[in-house]
């Protein structure tokens, strides 16, 4: 019995660490709050403002960065290939451009820390006080 409990505890810890793997980040002065459906709107080009009406600039990590894949599948619920197909529908019809990409967490933090409208994401382990975390997934 205690063995089962121990296993459950380990599983919970493991799943907890998976859930909190990425942090959605904004400029420290940005007090916005976002939920998953707003993140979908912003990162799929369907909206470009926070819920308080101020302008939002979504930023992606480059393809191939593990946190990008986690964000695509867990937050946007789409595979990277599906998202590429989705954006090709907008790009080649003049209806939108995908978020700008940054190569790694350091570049992402620097970009978000420099732009009050920016919203991005990084691996939770890369969080520091140059940026503010608004959600984790």
């Amino acid at each position: 019995m205690s063995y089962v409990k121990a296993m459950l505890a380990v599983l919970l810890l493991l799943s907890g660490s998976v859930v909190a793997e990425i942090a959605i980040i904004v400029h420290p002065a940005n007090n916005a709050s976002v939920d998953q459906s707003e993140l979908n709107r912003l990162f799929l080009g369907r909206g470009n403002s926070f819920s308080d009406g101020s302008r939002a600039t979504p930023l992606n990590l480059a393809e191939g960065v593990p946190a990008r894949e986690h964000f695509d599948t867990q937050v946007l619920n789409r595979s990277s290939a599906q998202l590429k197909a989705y954006w090709s529908r907008l790009v080649f019809t003049g209806k939108g451009t995908p978020p700008a990409e940054h190569p790694n967490a350091a570049a992402m933090k620097a970009a978000v820390a420099a732009d009050p409208s920016a919203i991005g994401y990084i691996s939770a382990s890369d969080v520091d006080d140059s940026i503010r975390v608004v959600a984790t997934f």
Binding site: K84, A85, S88, R89, F92, T93, K95
Partner: peptide, 8 residues
């Protein structure tokens, strides 16, 4: 709009 973009 994207009938020529087979990837889409």
């Amino acid at each position: 709009d994207f009938m020529d973009v087979g990837f889409a």
